[in-house]
Design a protein around this nucleic acid. Sequence first.
DNA 1: CTCATTTGACCCTG
DNA 2: CAGGGTCAAATGAG
Length: 260
Amino acid sequence: MATAAMRTSAACEVMAEAREASVRLLALLQATGADPGRQELARQIICCIDRALTAARAGGGKRRSPDQGFAARPPAGSRRRPRGVEEARARMVMRPTMEDGFAWRKYGEKSIHRQSSPRLYFRCAYKDDHRCGARKQVERVDDDPSLFRTTYFGDHTPACPRDTARVAEADGGGHFVLRPASFCSFGPCLQAEAGNERPLRPAEMVEFIAEDCWDEMADLASFGGVSLSSPGPGGLESFGAANLEELLKYSVDEFFKLEE
DNA sequence: CTCATTTGACCCTG
DNA sequence: CAGGGTCAAATGAG
């Protein structure tokens, strides 16, 4: 009988293979000049796998835990945070706005090597009030300057106020805008990821996402103020969504209906 | 005057 | 040594 350690080890091997395939996919997309959204999605997949690997190797397998903040602070005098665990917990999203409803304080700006726009560094405005360790880095996407790539580190404390109206206003017209081009290319990329010869049908796509990418999907939905609880495989079909974008739009629209 | 932002220096990692 | 993350003094807005 296989022990938990053996199962974890086997899972790590499979994930390592998936990572290698994703890296090849990204290289292929770059070589063929595929649209930036597809390349970005490939990067997100790799990032996702890295996090899964880190969690598995740490003996995890648990869902993202509440913020552990900066419990593992660097030694006194160090100005740099330890890499690894925290980076593995980073979540990256692409949106047409920097706004996400939370209050942030900018604490730095840095021009990045071979990148036309600088990277902006923010930490939660309630860092001291609520001992919140949330941080984010924002930069314009080089290939599409109308988009901002925002990377979040750590989570806000429940006490941190969130103004969803500001999100709606920033995105225009009271509806969260799901603009990233990556959504348009979700189908082909998921097909490659799933190793399918034919395109995934919408229901299969949703199933695949529910099983493999739920955290990323929930993160995206959360920026519309939507909290998604995992329905488990198959449960998503009850939404009647044609694809992920429709599903997310549906979720976000439902949220704003509740708000009105 | 207070507080947020800017920006160059400092320091760490690879 | 280069690149990147953070600090903190200077600056500006309200």
